[in-house]
């Protein structure tokens, strides 16, 4: 492999004992086709923010679905905390339940509404508590989906391209929000994204997937808040883009 592969060696992969999420030798294929995930190893430390990059068909979504428990583990092993939450690209709110009811869907206890209100205020949606989901804007719907994920106090949060369908300005605000929430809650996060800048703004570590294997695993050792003007930002951006097969001038 090329220079990018050496970055892999340098990355600080958490040891097996203290990892929150541990994927070992995970292989997944559909029918007789090539493996979508090919003996994949991945460890995420408690409180670590990992961005998962890769082209369409590189196995990102399959990995996330396996970690979310939506796809079965047929070969290899996956260990993850019991409390996990997923935010998808679409908000997937139930249109027939009000925003606060969506937030605490499946939660029990007399204080359901109070908890919903608290978490909705945290994501900046305190004014839409009783709204019907179909009246929300795209950004508001994603905030509600984030609230629904956070109210469960997950030890591991999965974000499946959560901002891909939002306009550029809303996306910036949402990235800031996710960054703030993560700073406060300190859960492990796996962010699946196409956006290299997004990965560099938010994550502690970026992992590039190619044909079901990890091609690049690189630490992002920058202080927050991060700036595009930072020379390390530029350097890492080049590294990630190159491992994605994009060469910018």
């Amino acid at each position: 492999m090329n220079a990018v592969a050496q970055v892999t060696q340098g990355a600080g992969v958490p040891s097996r004992d203290d990892a929150a999420v541990l994927v070992h030798g995970l292989t997944r294929r559909f029918g007789d086709g090539p493996a979508v995930l090919d003996r994949l190893d991945l460890a995420i430390a408690p409180g670590e923010f990992v961005a998962l990059l890769g082209h369409s068909g590189s196995g990102k979504s399959t990995l996330l679905r396996t970690l979310a428990g939506l796809d079965p583990v047929t070969e290899g092993s996956v260990a993850r905390p019991r409390e996990v939450s997923v935010v998808f690209q679409e908000s997937r709110l139930l249109p027939w339940k009000r925003v606060w009811q969506n937030t605490v869907l499946g939660q029990d206890g007399a204080d359901r509404r109070d908890r919903a209100v608290a978490v909705l205020e945290e994501v900046g949606l305190g004014h839409r508590i009783d709204a019907w989901p179909l009246t929300l804007s795209g950004g508001e719907a994603q905030r509600a989906a984030l609230a629904r994920a956070l109210v469960r106090e997950p030890a591991f949060l999965m974000l499946d391209e959560p901002f891909a369908a939002l306009d550029a300005l809303t996306r910036l605000k949402m990235q800031q929000l996710v960054s703030d929430l993560w700073t406060r809650h300190r859960c492990s996060v796996l962010l699946v994204t196409h956006d290299v800048d997004e990965a560099l703004l938010l994550a502690d570590r970026a992992v590039v997937l190619e044909r079901g294997r990890i091609r690049t695993d690189v630490l992002i050792p920058m202080d927050r808040p991060r700036r595009h003007a930072d020379p390390r930002f530029e350097h890492l951006r080049g590294v990630l883009l190159e491992s994605l097969g994009v060469h910018d001038g």
Binding site: A68, G69, L70, V84, S85, V86, F88, E90, R92, L94, L105, G106, R148, R152
Partner: peptide, 12 residues
Amino acid sequence: PKLLEMARTLGL
């Protein structure tokens, strides 16, 4: 089916 998937991830 996306809503059903969501229900599964929420552990319903």
